[in-house]
Amino acid sequence: MTNASLTHLRQLEAESIHIIREVVAEFEKPVMLFSIGKDSMVMLWLALKAFYPGKPPFPLLHVDTTWKFKEMIRFRDEITKKLGLECFVHTNQEAKKAGINPFDHGGRYTDIMKTDALKQALSHHQFDAAFGGARRDEERSRAKERVYSFRDASHQWDPKNQRPELWRLYNGRIAKGESIRVFPLSNWTELDVWQYIHLENIPIVPLYYAKERPVVHRDGTLIMVDDERMRLKEGEEPEMRMVRFRTLGCYPLTGAIDSSATTVPEIVHEMLTATTSERQGRVIDRDEEAAMEKKKREGYF
């Protein structure tokens, strides 16, 4: 019997569970950031496994920009109720009152409604560790991200000042006011995530599966008209198309792809034949060179 008898997925699973338990054991007030996406669901699934037969001893936190797909919110409420988990929902109320929206405020919108809102919520609840579902394979700037990512008291990330991580020994010592972001899925790839969802039959938001949805063409992507707040440009006419989403976020900023995949194996099939990386669907990445690195320095995931 050797390591080889534990498949790569089970090794990844064991590593992630180890990380989640380690954080719970060493931090006073952890929270799990719940974006409602597939990675979040895998992370939550691993947390359920980590503390079974108990429940994960931390709440979930969802930063609601108020522009998420309706189906995401419905799914969030259903799954947290079904699992009996506490889920804090936080919105940057001031910005909402000021009318900050993805149409008029471009890149600043994400800063204000996601990054700032997340910092507000973390500071308000005084969480000292926040689990996030980010993976290193998502984007080049994440290849060097640690599993424990340190943030100073103002939630800033300094790429030059991250701690070396050796073996399975994570250094969880922080000063008062400081916090960490923890990425238990660091070593998972997109294919691993789908494979695991398939293997474990993990529920995910139906938006990942293809369905007839009302979309418009905009800047080379398909944007779904999820509600009446969608501002149509001149000449834009919503049309019903079989589409699905590879990543989920705020609907006016998330591109759909033409697809007929209605099951996980079909999604994997599409993925294997796909020629563009997952983040292509995210409009925010294209704002500027090294966009993610900048966002990360500022406290966005």
Binding site: T7, Q195, V268, H269, L272
Partner: peptide, 13 residues
């Protein structure tokens, strides 16, 4: 595809 998933699932690391 199912055969592929099955193989991928059983891979070592």
């Amino acid at each position: 595809i199912l055969a592929f998933l099955d193989r991928h699932e059983k891979k070592g690391l």
